[in-house]
Nucleic acid binder design. Structure first.
Lengths: 338, 338
DNA sequence: CTGAAAGCGCTTACAG
DNA sequence: CTGAAAGCGCTTACAG
């Protein structure tokens, strides 16, 4: 049946302690004994049972990542970067998808924190911090990713949302835009709130109309952008800010279908999913805000492993900055000239 | 510290067996006893330790998925579908990325099969079946996804590769194409081989030139398509078949940059990533082969769970069919008229 | 330099 | 209807 450490010990004529120590290099074992142990391992085809080991040591060598939408390229790329960092450090990655559903998130949080993983990364879709907080066992290593909460109880790795939006609105204004509309993501998310308030401050500072009707919200996941656009176009907007990559591509397609040409008929600025081929075609006709997704993933990996090492370390908040690429400055997209 | 089942048993005044049985509904417990147990659980805030449980039972309730490229939308969507199916059935998903590297794949296979997961799904990048086979412990539940091997030792869930390519070549020929070039993915993959031979048979059957120089291979991951296209264009191809979604979008961009217009200057047919916004813009100018990615993921989930239930079941090969959408027939992309 | 043995937190025959 | 106890496969003080 299953070959265990005792089988190896017996065949090698040593104790299980010695087998364990030679495998893990955790105390001195004479070369001769080592050789006997390895010989026995080879003969029996022994592989240590990861499940028993992690049960015994309490270390799972696994982290969980709770994601709102796996198939979204933004998160797909982040998952890749996280997995890359973790596997380099001997950790595994468990993925859970919430589809922006708080109940699913809560379930995943409970399951994962109940002895399945050493720590979790979460891009939370919850509005209520207390609900989130109540679901996490005390002291459990957590790093918030991309989205954070007002209450600064957990470490986080996010992207600067305010500055690029503020700047792009100012720039649109400087180019003569009269009415700038904005399509935000899910209103409850911290990222959305930051982006919307950047827009609102900028619009005010630039002396542009601050009408509530110019601020619309799309669902980050479904095809809900079209009605927002119809609404903004009916309001005679000459520039539109879109707060999220998936919605941006829908926007481009929809404007295209309506016969509107970017840069000529209407100005568009949008968060854009890093490295997406889609935008390469349009980077000369719109302002792109490119988020450092891979660094975000890598930083998330770093943070969670360091918290697992040292769960009582002070809260750490990392904010990465997005690149702002206006379309009529020399195109440096991906370092290539268009 | 940690609250264990013994703490609960002590507080409730019952045995650990009874606590276990009431939690798991695995033998009769009187209502009164149940109540005492649940009361104790609430009081202590007890959560069963998943690690101990899975060690004890030998069931991890987890499957591994070894993927060549997570950030590729094709696999991202598949991961989502798999995760969806698994979580519905109480399973977790561990993801490992190989970046089309056989060594990484081998490492992941070893790690995952050593007691971490109950079964694995793998879109293998290995050329050598024996190497793959030697890495899998005897009887370990495995389902191959998207890519298979000549030797039919493992169950698989794939997509029909031959028919759509054969048909599209015939159709190009029928429209008058004289020289059709093809850009395949990694030559070692079963999917690539099937697609290339479909092309070759069709080209022969249609009486078109069967020159070796018309068959080129791109790396599925890097930006290696451009040189292939330059080559084919220099050979005066009037139609090009591209075998993979990522390469297809690069192709569109590159042809666009060269000032070539699809459908007018050159005909393009390509496998396309399901649901990608990118193609929505081009579905009226090129032939699209749309793979049923979500069904693929769902079927993969079904197959691996049923193999875990019943590891000795006969090998099962499932082949899903892709949709072929020529561009000048009425556009039914996503059910919408363009 | 190495071994005997406890114990991680559960589940599950076995027994009554 | 429920309990006492073995045992899953490791790691790790403790002891010599």
């Amino acid at each position: 049946m299953k070959v265990t450490i005792s089988d190896v010990a017996r065949l090698a004529g040593v104790s299980t302690a010695t087998v364990s120590h030679t495998i893990n290099n955790t105390r001195y074992v004479s070369d001769e004994t080592k050789e006997r142990v390895y010989q026995a391992i080879r003969e029996l085809g022994y592989t240590p049972d990861a499940s028993a080991r992690s049960f015994r040591t309490g270390k799972k060598q696994t982290v969980g990542f709770i994601v709102p939408d796996i198939s979204n390229k933004f998160f797909g790329t982040m998952i890749e970067a996280v997995e890359n960092y973790l596997s380099e450090h001997g950790y595994h990655l468990i993925i859970a998808n919430t589809k922006e559903d708080a109940d699913r998130e809560e379930t995943s949080l409970r399951l994962l924190t109940a002895g399945l993983v050493d720590g979790i990364l979460v891009a939370s879709t919850m509005e209520d911090f207390n609900r989130f907080d109540a679901t996490i066992p005390a002291g459990f290593p957590v790093v918030l990713v991309d989205r954070t909460f007002e209450a600064k109880k957990y470490s986080s790795v996010c992207v600067s949302n305010f500055q690029p939006i503020y700047r792009s609105v100012c720039r649109l204004s400087g180019k003569g835009a009269q009415r700038i509309g904005i399509v935000g993501g899910l209103p409850r998310l911290s990222s959305t709130k930051e982006r919307i308030s950047a827009y609102q401050e900028a619009v005010e500072d630039c002396g542009l109309p601050q009408e509530e009707s110019l601020v619309l919200y799309g669902d980050s996941m479904e095809n809900s952008v079209q009605s927002c656009l119809d609404d903004l176009l009916a309001q005679k907007c000459d520039a539109i800010v879109v707060c999220q990559g998936l919605m941006a591509s829908e926007t481009i397609i929809y404007l295209h279908q309506k016969g509107l040409q970017l840069a000529r008929d209407i100005d568009l600025v949008s968060f854009v999913d890093y490295d997406s081929n889609f935008y390469e075609l349009y980077s000369s006709q719109m302002d792109c805000i490119v988020q450092p997704v891979e660094e975000l993933g890598r930083a998330a990996g770093e943070q969670i492993l360091s918290r697992i090492e040292n769960p009582d370390a002070p809260i750490f908040e990392k904010v990465l900055t997005s690149a702002y690429r206006p379309y009529d400055s020399p195109n440096t997209w991906n370092g290539k000239k268009a």
